[in-house]
Design a protein around this nucleic acid. Structure first.
Lengths: 313, 313
DNA sequence: TTCATTTTTTTCATTATTGGATAGTGCCAC
DNA sequence: GTGGCACTATCCAATAATGAAAAAAATGAA
């Protein structure tokens, strides 16, 4: 004698272990069974076992406290209650389909990408290449964040960053793109005047243009500070563009990227001071999978690679 | 050193065992995490573990091949892609809510109920009580199926049946409601004529009205056949109403329910011939949980109970 | 009737999912 | 920089879901 529940129905699989409530996926099962009429063909469509469907329908009926189907040898036939729910279930299905469609559109190469980088690189390197990029990816809107002191990738101020310093922590992916060469530069007039005075490697009487206090951690600033040995610089500023202008005006020597200084018509003071810096592409690790982010990243990598000579000096 | 995948991301739980595709329920998880911003509070809402949510989001991202969140110490923050999917996910959620609302309306006491029963019971017993039933359940539409020979509960010709015979097989629930008493009846004129001829228990010269061939399996038909001992009946018919009319016309003796015969003005020939039959209420087992079916079932049970004397004779 | 067919239901071994504890990580305030 | 804090990621034992196969049930036909 089998055990029976209150309705004289044998106690089944799902009554043994008290099931959890309704799950959205059960609705999908409900629809498939309602349409096919039999568990077997519905199972074939869903790539599930027959037993699974039987249990899911039972779980759904228990959760809803509603008989959805009449079980017959010829298959599962909808009850009046079940038929009334078909419409609602189909709405769910339509929403699910809309969701997956939304996925493919979200995966498109479109949307906003925020790139943090130094102002000089932005204007001198990236901006000139932007038309080409937009031609290739018309859907992407690039946003350049050059306020580098406050940029924090972890706070989502930007999606990517082109940086000279290696971030130690943070859930980011690093990619070294190339090298940015730095040198000592001054105006042609300043250099001509200087050469008559002393050796190239002696800076005791030189005027220097360097970074302000807040950028004192930069390698360039530290190099200048070391050379000055306590003397005051001729000018401190928080922007490289200002340093460039000051050097051009003949105020003194500045540590500048080779390509910027040369293109501005400045003259190098010494050949190499060992201040070359790596260029890193930093990406939020979670975003490495994003199509539009990768498009920008690849674009930047190609850009730096094609300008390798120019950048390293 | 931890193993890494192609993006430098550590290989996680879900990459170990190849996961299945997208399940609708993951969308619900996605919404909860997006709204709460952290796994922990989302987990509290969903009554799930933190680890579960983490894995579900990861599974969803893998299935969609789309980064949905940026993981930070302050929690999960939506990516551009994820934000674009929120709207679609909310549509899914709304559809799910509509579904559950649909459940409560489907559970209402409304809809069509098909009741199979013998014609005589339908007209003489059920019909008179219908106004009272409809007053109590205005939403239910009762459909009486009296073509009893073809009724097959298994084919969903009807939801319930009031029957005299016990179904042997089928996924049905049985409920005995009472007894229907049968007796031998004839017109007053026939009986008066007959009494002058012979004993009440001797039927050798009596004319009988009985069922046609297709109803030969009925207890009443078999009783008559036994009594006739090869003689031909005066009339065979496939409807009890016809038998009643024939008996009333004085054509002979018929086996009829007490209450029908008496109310038609017929006279009993012998007191008791042992042909009383049980009245069963037969319900599709799957439908016993249905509110509207139960309403009809309970109504029928009360109806038979309140007519017990009249039916059993 | 009995048989053959189809379909559900049950059983059981396998596999996947779950949650609590643990470990690891970055942010913030001091 | 150092510790506190809050969060996520991982591990593993317990739980739940699954599928293949066997059993049961009912229909339709011989």
């Amino acid at each position: 004698m089998k055990k029976m529940n209150e309705f004289g129905k044998p106690i089944s699989d799902y009554e043994k272990h008290m099931p959890r409530g309704w799950v959205w996926d059960d609705t999908r099962t409900f629809l498939a069974v309602a349409r096919h009429g039999t568990l077997s063909s519905a199972a074939a469509e869903l790539n599930l076992g027959i037993a699974t469907l039987s249990r899911r329908i039972e779980r759904l009926e228990n959760a809803l406290k509603l008989p959805l189907f009449v079980r017959q040898q010829s298959g599962y036939q909808l009850t009046e209650e079940g038929a009334g729910l078909i419409e609602k279930a189909e709405a769910l299905e339509a929403a699910a389909a809309a969701f997956t469609r939304g996925v493919s559109s979200a995966a498109q190469l479109s949307g906003r990408v925020r790139l943090a980088t130094a102002e000089n690189l932005a204007t001198a390197l990236i901006l000139p290449a932007l038309p080409q990029f937009y031609a290739q990816y018309p859907g992407i809107t690039l946003e350049l964040v050059t306020d580098i002191t406050t940029v924090n990738l972890h706070r989502r101020d930007a999606d990517l960053a082109l940086r000279m310093v290696k971030p130690e922590r943070g859930n980011v992916t690093l990619r070294r793109l190339g090298t940015l060469g730095f040198g000592l530069y001054a105006s042609p007039g300043y250099v001509a005047q200087r050469e008559s005075l002393h050796d190239a490697g002696d800076f005791d009487t030189d005027a220097f243009i360097t970074w302000g206090e807040t950028q004192a951690h930069l390698p360039a600033a530290q190099w200048v500070e070391r050379v000055l040995r306590g003397r005051a610089p001729a000018l401190t500023t928080t922007s490289m563009a200002t340093q460039l202008a000051a050097a051009k005006a003949g105020l003194g020597i500045a540590v500048l990227p080779h390509f910027l200084a040369r293109e501005a018509g400045l003259v190098g003071v010494v050949a190499d001071i060992g201040l070359d810096q790596p260029i890193y592409l930093v990406i939020q690790t979670d975003l490495t999978q994003s199509a539009r982010i990768r498009a920008v990243a690849d674009f930047l990598a190609a850009l730096v690679a094609s300008n390798r000579e120019r950048l390293s000096g």
